[in-house]
Structures are given as C-alpha cells and as structure tokens.
Amino acid sequence: MELRINQKAYQVDADADTPLLWVIRDDLGLTGTKYGCGLAQCGACSVLVDGNVVRSCVTPVAGVVGREITTIEAIEADDVGKRVVAAWVEHQVAQCGYCQSGQVMAATALLKHNPAPSDAQIEAAMVNLCRCGTYNAIRTAVHDLAKQESA
C-alpha cells in the first residue's frame, strides 16, 4: 500500500491492521514519534492525519491510505507547527523529551482548529501524559500561542 507521510509517498508492505506507529518507526525509520502505552492513553505516538491529531498506536494502517500524514520530523514545514516548536524552545518545555513530539502534535492540532482557544479548551485538548511533569511549561507555551493569536 502507499502512504503519504510528510508530503512524500512511501510504499509499505504491512498487514491491514498493523498500527500506523509500527510502520512509521520500524518500517520507515521515522523514530521521532514515540511508543508510550499502546492504548491511546498517553499520546506519545500522536501524529497528524489530514490536520487532525491521531494516536498512531491505535490507527490501523489500512485506514490512512490516501490521507496526508504529518510526523514530528516535518512539523516545522507547517506554519502553526513552526510557531509551536518556537514557543516550546522559548519556554524550554522539554525535560526528558520523550512525550514532547506528541505534545507538539496535540498543540498544533488544537491551534489549527482553534487559533485562540479558551483556557478550558486548552485544558480539554492538552491531555497527553508527561512523566517529568512539564505540564506547567506546556500550559504556559500554549497560552502564549493562544494569546499571540487573539491579540
């Protein structure tokens, strides 16, 4: 089957029910996307599919054929993604960094759908887990981005 990832076409040989995450990491070597829980609970594996945040560990690869997949490797090619990464650097969000590619994806998807989210909407959307507890830094960075937009 053919997958479009980061504006590039890839030929993939996988069972229909293989999680997209395995294809991205193991078959294509795009290891910026991380495996956390395997149950769509933590969000470390988040990628964008047609601009929506998707947990690739629970996404059967057959379901994303013909759709536009974006991983952390190419997130800065996206205007919103680029601003998110800049805010992440400015606020020095990452600690160990394992969850951060997923956090960036979640923030990017949120701001693409809603450039000026309310506090409650940010709370509701930024639910990826971080075992270092960088939640305060994440919140500050996203609030900052939301403020830039509404200003």
Partner: peptide, 18 residues
C-alpha cells in the same frame, strides 16, 4: 463535533482517537 460541553470535550480527547 466541537460543541462546548464537557461530554464533547472528553469524547474528543479520550475517545475520538479510536
């Protein structure tokens, strides 16, 4: 799908992935 009610928020973040 973007209703501003608690149930919809929970659905979007906890359920919609699958």
């Amino acid at each position: 799908t973007h209703q501003d009610i608690p149930g919809a928020h929970t659905y979007a973040t906890r359920c919609a992935s699958c």
